[in-house]
């Protein structure tokens, strides 16, 4: 595995992002913009399920899911670029692995929230629970991502 991570790090993309004076900064900026798009939509929708922003029906937020997906793909691409620049270090970083798992959980739970809202209503108990767990996972993904600079 170590060899594979080393090869990713030595790839053209990895070298560029790590060594170009602007490579890492540009990828990080894109990552922050993508985060705001994906997490922004996730937050208004999950807070709706928790009856915090209840004037907007979940069905209305569905009109912005394409924006959330766009943000997600911006971050998938910028994330791969950032990862390739320090693949060996990140692959063994606990907060990074936690971040990936939290993104996976947050996405699945968000889908379960939408399905539940369709079946049982925007503020049904099950919708609330899935919304709460999804929001917690996504906030956890922001936090563990930010903490990669510290641990």
């Amino acid at each position: 595995m170590m060899e594979l991570f080393q090869r990713i790090e030595d790839s053209g993309l990895g070298v560029y992002i790590r060594e170009d004076p602007w490579g890492f900064a540009i990828a990080l900026s894109a990552h922050a913009v993508g985060m705001s798009m994906a997490l922004g939509v996730v937050m208004v929708a999950t807070l709706r399920s928790l009856n915090v922003l209840k004037q907007v029906p979940l069905q209305a937020h569905a009109n912005l899911y394409a924006v959330a997906w766009a943000g997600f793909f911006v971050n998938l691409i910028s994330g791969i670029a950032l990862y390739s620049s320090h693949a060996v270090e990140y692959s063994y970083q606990v907060v990074f692995i936690m971040k990936l798992l939290l993104i996976l959980a947050g996405g699945i739970l968000f889908k379960l929230m939408i399905d539940s809202a369709r079946k049982y209503g925007d503020s049904a108990g099950r919708t609330k629970l899935m919304g709460f767990l999804s929001l917690a996972s996504w906030l956890g993904a922001i936090i563990t991502g930010r903490l990669m600079a510290y641990f």
Partner: peptide
């Protein structure tokens, strides 16, 4: 910042 942008996107 994510919350701010989320509200603004809507």
């Amino acid at each position: 910042l994510s919350a701010l942008v989320g509200g603004l996107l809507v």
